[in-house]
């Protein structure tokens, strides 16, 4: 339950409210993790929040977290500068297990900051591009100004990713699509019978996306979602993240849609 001190070795402002921190342990080994896992990140004296790892798992380098400044702790994290020390516990939780998609089409559906937890999974797929058939990334965000990882996105396209982007609100200068990310699902090029899909974003967006994928013919057990709940410990002891019988921090955050589709249908579970 004790955080390890990690030093901020790099920082990037991704959008007006979202930033990426690069962290290295002040001593000891770097943090090993699998794509989809999260850590409990502390701003000392302020608090601790769960944040998914947003960097690649298969290459050495600093631990990366991409965080949206939405409240007290994330704001304190946003104010940390290079040289400062943050606390890290983990990694915790289940991963995306992208390797289950070998030989299949893999489809990533991201809403907003949800692209950050998916990024390590996309990077893993791209590091073994030949093991997968089509790779599709569907990304919806509020406005063109909120697009994350713009450079990486272009890069991914260069590596054979079909990328479709849509925004909720586009200014007149925006030539791209406007609409919900779910509208991209019917038009993306993948074979629903041989597809493994990974969905991350706000809960309504994940539910609607999963339903659209099912509509298109993907079976619920071939869809993975990453659920978000309040978390205070990350190891199933604090009780906050319970989703009926599931501890989202231990049994999740990545779960099969088949496992949670019924529960997601009830209000306020």
């Amino acid at each position: 339950m004790v955080p390890r001190p990690f030093r901020l070795v790099g920082r990037r402002q991704d959008t007006t409210d979202t930033f990426t921190v690069l962290l290295e342990p002040t001593e000891g080994d770097p943090l090993g993790f699998v794509p989809g896992q999260f850590t409990m990140l502390s701003a000392f004296g302020v608090g601790e929040v769960p944040v998914s790892v947003s960097g690649a798992a298969h290459v050495a380098g600093p631990l990366q977290h991409t965080v949206r400044d939405v409240g007290a702790v994330t704001h304190a994290l946003s104010r940390a500068s290079v040289g400062d020390v943050l606390g890290v516990r983990g990694p915790y939780g289940t991963g995306w297990d992208v390797a289950h998609g070998h030989g299949k089409d893999v489809v990533f559906v991201a809403g907003g900051i949800g692209l950050a937890p998916l990024r390590p999974a996309v990077l893993e797929v791209l590091s073994h591009r030949d093991r997968y058939r089509r790779v599709v990334v569907l990304y919806g965000t509020r406005s063109p100004d909120d697009l994350l990882f713009a450079d990486s996105l272009a890069d991914w396209q260069g590596q054979g990713v079909e990328l479709l982007v849509t925004v909720d609100y586009g200014p007149p200068s925006w030539a791209g699509r406007v609409g919900l990310v779910t509208t991209l699902i019917p038009r993306a090029g993948f074979d629903p019978k041989y597809t493994l899909a990974f969905v991350c974003g706000p809960e309504v967006m994940m539910r609607r996306s999963a339903m659209a994928l099912v509509e298109r013919g993907v079976t619920p057990d071939s869809i993975r979602v990453s659920l978000e709940r309040n978390m205070r410990c990350g190891v199933g002891l604090c009780g906050h993240c319970q989703f009926r019988e599931l501890f989202i921090c231990v049994d999740g955050p990545v779960l099969s849609y088949a496992r949670v589709a019924g529960l997601l249908g009830y209000r306020e579970v």
Partner: peptide, 18 residues
């Protein structure tokens, strides 16, 4: 058994406790 955590720091920010 459910619990929460409180982070407390002194005014100078030199010590923190959880």
């Amino acid at each position: 058994f459910c619990t929460s955590v409180d982070d407390v720091g002194d005014l100078t920010g030199s010590t923190t406790e959880r």
